[in-house]
Amino acid sequence: MHISQINAFIPEKKLDNQILAKKFNVSEDWIYKRTGIKNRYISEIDVFQMGIKAAEVLDIDGVDTVLFVSSVGAHYVPFYVRIFEKLKIKNSRYGIDVSNGFVGFVTSLHIADVMFRENIANKILLIVSEKLSDLVEENDINTAILFSDAAVAMILENHDKCICDHRVMYDSEYLDALNINENKKIIMDGKRVYKFAVNNMKKMLSQYINDYGKKIIVPHQANKRILESVKKNFNDFEFLDIIEKYGNTGAASIPLTLFKTYGNTKISLKDHLLISVGGGMTTSAITWRCNNE
């Protein structure tokens, strides 16, 4: 499977450490040491409109399937149906909204793989749109310094006959470490999230590397301290990392990292190992095995 086109929508409104430091009466250095983040972006339009902004410049000729990924699901009318209409996709064949928290993008790639292998889809438009600023309590410094908004759209094609190896681990002991409260806002125990993310990402990466050897690792951009702690165990591997400039964009963070690293060009996913962690707590990763491997 490969990405033949990719584009991102980054909101214009920037939330930097200077603004947050003043609001919470802390230093910019205090924020940076805890997150490794300098900038976040806040969208003034909703997740559907963000997704349209990311997708509207792509050449959708031949697209017959739409996957719309967001931590916040659609109401009543699925997002993918509205995409068919808004982008005037003529040969609409199938679609799914994927709402699976921060691991939603990894999940959607497995769904795409099944669709290709079962001849359900020929060409897939995959949109990941996250407006995490809507899920942040205004006066919660723990989440305000982390989360950011972004949308990424891509065209997926499958001409290399590779199949995915998608693995998931759950740990219910950490269920309350990252969750949603009665106001539908994110609540987080930072120390426990750190422990869960580092331990489980290391464990899962070791399993994949044992089976596949060297791949380019694209982790969920959760927190710089988490990424650096994981990297220490895999010094010979390339890790893609953009968190300092864009913050934690949830399910959009891995595709945004791909776009910011490679630009709008063909990206061979078989060369990469994608890994994400999310509320629940869930660890989810995916790579591809090809006939010549």
Rank of each mutant, 00 (worst) to 15 (best):
A8M: 07
K13T: 13
K14N: 15
I19W: 04
A21W: 11
W30H: 07
Y32C: 10
K33T: 10
I45Q: 09
Q49D: 08
K53L: 07
A54R: 04
A54M: 06
D64A: 13
T65S: 10
T65Y: 03
V81T: 11
F84T: 00
E85T: 10
E85G: 08
K88E: 15
I89Y: 07
I89L: 12
G95F: 03
D97P: 07
V106M: 12
I111P: 00
F116P: 03
N119H: 09
I124V: 13
I124Y: 02
I127D: 03
L132E: 08
A150C: 09
L175I: 15
N179W: 11
I180C: 03
E182K: 14
K184G: 06
G190P: 09
V193P: 00
F196A: 01
A197W: 01
S206Q: 09
I209T: 10
I209N: 04
I209M: 06
K214D: 10
K214F: 11
Q221H: 13
I226S: 01
S229E: 11
N233A: 02
D241G: 09
I242N: 11
I243N: 13
Y246K: 12
P255L: 10
F259T: 05
N264Y: 02
I267V: 08
S268Y: 13
H272E: 12
L273V: 07
L274H: 02
I275L: 08
G280I: 05
M281L: 15
S284A: 12
I286A: 03
